[in-house]
Each structure stands twice: as C-alpha cells, then as structure tokens.
C-alpha cells in the first residue's frame, strides 16, 4: 500500500495529496509536537476565554441576555473539551496539558488578558473576538490532522450563534441612549486592535508559520486571515453607526481589500509575555478552580478503586 516508500515519504505523500493524518499513522516527531502545541493552545484559549465573559453572567441586563451568555460560556467549555481530547490522541495526558497551562509553558490567546469592563465589552467580545476566532477556525477545518479538523467542523457549527449574539448586543447599545452609544464605541475602540492581533505576528516573524503551512496544519497565513477579518468587519462597524477605530483604513480598489493601519506589536509581545492587564489573574483563577475541584476527582478515584476491589472479591468468591 505504501509502495515501498519510507515512513517520511509516505507521510509527505499524504500531506501533499490533501489526505488527513490520523492518530495511528506514522508522523514526524516535530509534526506531533507542533500539533500538541497548537491544539492545546487552542484548548487553553477556549477555557481561559470563559473568564472575561463569565464575569458578566450575574450582571447581564435581562434574563434573556443572561441565558444567552450562560449558553455561550457553556459552549466554550465544551470546545475546550473537544480540543483537549483531540490533543490527547497525540499521546499526551490531560494532566500534562493542564500543568503546562498553569506553569506558563503553554500559551493561550492573549486577547483574554484584557479585562471586560462594561456590558458592551461582552458584545464586543462575541462579535470581534469570536468573529476573529471563526475566521481562523473556518480555515482550520481543512487542517491536515483528522481529529483537529473534525473538532473544528463541530466547533464552527456551534460557534455561529456566538458572533451574532455579540453583534446584537452592540446593535442595541449603538442605537440606544447617548451613554449606551458611547459605551459601545468605547468597547469597539478597546477590542478592535487586540482582535487583529489574535491572528498572530506577521508571517515573516511567525516562529511556526512556514513549517505549519508546509505540513498543512495551517492552511492560510496569519496576514491573509487578518486581512479577511479586517475586510468583513469594516461594513459591520458601518452598520452599527460607530466610528472605525482605524483612521488609516482605506479601500484599495486594486487589491480588492482594505489597507489598514499598523498594529502595536510591542503591546502584543508585552501581553503574550505575561504583562497584560489580567494574565496573573486568569491563571490564578484557573489554578484555584482546579484545586477546588480536587475533592471531586479524588472522590471519583476512590469510588473506582472501591468498585475494583469489590469486583475482584466477587470474582474470587465465584472461583
């Protein structure tokens, strides 16, 4: 079946033919490592991302908004689960993944280190942060690793309401009282640029981009995905009747895309390296929640041990 190809060549043949790599296939160690890094980072982002929004569940302005937000945050937890499970097919345990998050050796999307200060921030997060995530995830539905691709398909399907509920919040505020309008504008101003940074550094500076593209782990470059997001967001801002935070935004007829202003990369690296507004708080909260849940894990373990002993005893008696 492999026509006498070496494992390496056979692997590359599948990649080039656009076939998926499945858990039991031979794969280069660096491919496996690269995937563990990317998928677990994605999983951590889903889970840490529950915090800024969870912060507003008890203060949502109506029962409807509260139910919607609760549902969205619940989805993010589920998405974390899909992605951790996909990562575990690569031969790493959940425990190792969690401790890498908690000791800072694994990253998560830096956007979640920004605080959610007002109700409008909840709208901006759903619309812009989930919007940017969807652009990235739609592209990843074609990633070369089967379990990751299938998790992405499921997540994209579920995610479709997240962006729309966020935009709806923004729409109501933007058309509301002058104070509400100002609140929407302020949230847009604060979340617009960090959302663009979610796509990562420029391709030339991205540490993992080239090889990830070659292995088809990533299917489109950071800059191409960012452009897509800038293009789709421009009209959405217009419909809201808000002012665009980027004063350099211009439609470029020749390119068929918007040209846009420079991003503050110092800020990006500063936040990635732990100095964002909420980095420490996010991890501390995760550690605390994990420790508070320890007794549940211990109880389940004790129950399992007890069942085993009981089963052994029954077998011995029967024998």
């Amino acid at each position: 079946m492999t026509d006498g190809l070496s494992p390496e060549d056979n692997f590359m043949r599948k990649i080039e033919a656009g076939e998926k790599i499945e858990p039991k296939d031979w794969m280069p160690e660096a491919y496996r490592k690269n995937l563990i890094r990317q998928i677990s980072q994605h999983a951590h982002s889903e889970v840490i991302g529950m915090q800024p929004e969870g912060n507003w569940i008890t203060r949502a302005p109506s029962l409807r908004r509260k139910a919607v937000l609760l549902s969205k945050v619940q989805d993010e937890g589920g998405h974390g689960l899909y992605l951790y499970s996909a990562t575990e097919t690569l031969g790493i345990s959940r425990e190792e993944l969690i401790s890498a998050l908690q000791d800072g050796s694994a990253k998560y999307a830096s956007i979640f280190n920004y605080p959610s200060q007002t109700w409008a921030d909840v709208g901006a997060i759903g619309w812009l942060v989930d919007g940017a995530a969807i652009v990235n995830q739609v592209s990843l539905q074609r990633t070369s690793y089967g379990p990751y691709a299938r998790a992405m398909i499921r997540i994209c399907k579920e995610e479709s309401f997240h962006q729309r509920q966020g935009y709806e919040i923004m729409l109501v505020l933007a058309q509301g009282s002058p104070e509400q309008h100002a609140m929407a504008q302020d949230a847009l101003n604060r979340f617009y640029w960090p959302s663009l940074m979610m796509f990562g550094p420029h391709d030339a500076e991205s540490a993992h981009s080239a090889r990830s593209m070659q292995w088809k782990i990533k299917r489109e470059t950071n800059d191409d995905l960012r452009q897509k997001f800038v293009d789709q967001t421009a009209q959405q801002i217009e419909v809201l009747g808000l002012e665009h935070p980027d004063k350099d935004l211009r439609w470029n007829e020749a390119r068929g895309h918007y040209d846009f202003g420079a991003l503050d990369w110092d800020e990006f690296y500063n936040v990635i390296n732990g100095n964002g507004y909420a980095n420490r708080q996010r991890i501390e909260h995760h550690v605390q929640a994990h420790e508070e849940g320890a007794w549940v894990r211990a109880a389940m373990q004790a129950y399992r041990d007890k069942q085993r002993v009981r089963q052994q005893t029954t077998t011995q008696v029967a024998a």
């Binding site: 409807r64 139910a67 919607v68 549902s71 989805d75 919007g131 579920e158 479709s160 309401f161 962006q163 729309r164 509920q165 935009y167 709806e168 729409l171 789709q232 009209q235 959405q236 419909v239």
Partner: peptide
C-alpha cells in the same frame, strides 16, 4: 427550550446577516 443556541435566533440587518 433554548432556541437561542441557534444562529437563526438572532435577527440582524440585511447588510451584515451573512455573519
């Protein structure tokens, strides 16, 4: 009883409805 988990639950202006 959670229709709001579906994208179609949210009515948006025509111009941005493909979101």
């Amino acid at each position: 009883d959670k229709p709001y988990r579906h994208a179609t639950y949210y009515k948006l202006p025509q111009a941005v409805d493909s979101m």
